[in-house]
Design a protein around this nucleic acid. Structure first.
Lengths: 135, 135
DNA sequence: CATGCACCCTGTAGGAACTATAGGGTCAAG
DNA sequence: CTTGACCCTATAGTTCCTACAGGGTGCATG
């Protein structure tokens, strides 16, 4: 418990570049950490969890603004439940759409691999997996 | 059939900025379309499908390079099946990881909404949904 | 104790993927 | 025949990193 991490440790643990961590601090997505006697940044487990969240949310295609917003759901100090509820529901819609798209893509990639395994290189429908939304 | 679309039509149909479409053309992600007498770009259904794919793949957090690679699975003219298979499997791994992360996030958002509906604003575990990978 | 070497610091500049603006042409409607 | 919505090229700006440049820290090792 109470383990302290250097910026390099944090970078390694999350697959982030050291510069990116400093960038997030500048953008106030990560709280300013404590400093050692030698002026090195000193992090703890909560920083690790938060950075992991940011990185993986970014990897899922959420903008930093959206990530900030999602983190806000957690950071709320005295926000009303209606506000939180509305924001969360909004995110839910986007998340569900992304899951549906990824599932369709997954299906096409899988069938491509299957075709290859059977030696039958039929038509590739990968583009159709993410076809325009019906309007 | 054989319907022709202006760049504005394409933009509207896919939720893309007109400038972004021209940018993709420059990056050779979209093939150069035909031109009208007045030098306007003229697209067809295949452009629409391809652009839709690009936009939605981008929204899912794939880099343009990765999208180019995915499109390559479809564009292959004379590529070997082993090559295709390897690339597709690699993408499959990433897609599955994204689906797992989104599902975890979806779960936490859902429980947040449920808590609000019941008036019990317990602890928010949204950050934990995308916790660091065990190493 | 000095001297590497790996790591950290604060800048600032560069790159990827758009996005906006300037300055101008096209075209259907009135 | 002009007005407004659209298109054209070219270029500069924004977001989100990423890569130096120039220098300090800290620990092992001769």
């Amino acid at each position: 418990m109470g383990e302290r991490l250097s910026i390099g440790d944090l970078a390694k643990a999350t697959g982030t570049k050291v510069e990116t961590i400093r960038y997030y601090e500048q953008m106030a997505l990560l709280p300013k950490p404590g400093r050692t006697a030698g002026n090195y940044r000193s992090y703890d487990a909560s920083h690790l969890a938060r950075l992991s969240f940011i990185r993986r949310a970014r990897d899922l295609g959420f903008s930093l603004e959206r990530v900030r917003n999602l983190l806000g759901l957690s950071d709320r100090k005295d926000r009303s439940c209606e506000g939180i509820d509305a924001i969360a529901e909004e995110h839910l819609v986007e998340v569900d759409r992304k899951i549906a798209d990824l599932t369709a893509l997954r299906h096409e990639l899988g069938s491509l691999v299957q075709q290859c395994k059977r030696g039958t290189i039929g038509e590739c429908r990968i583009i159709e997996a993410l076809a325009p939304h019906r309007v």
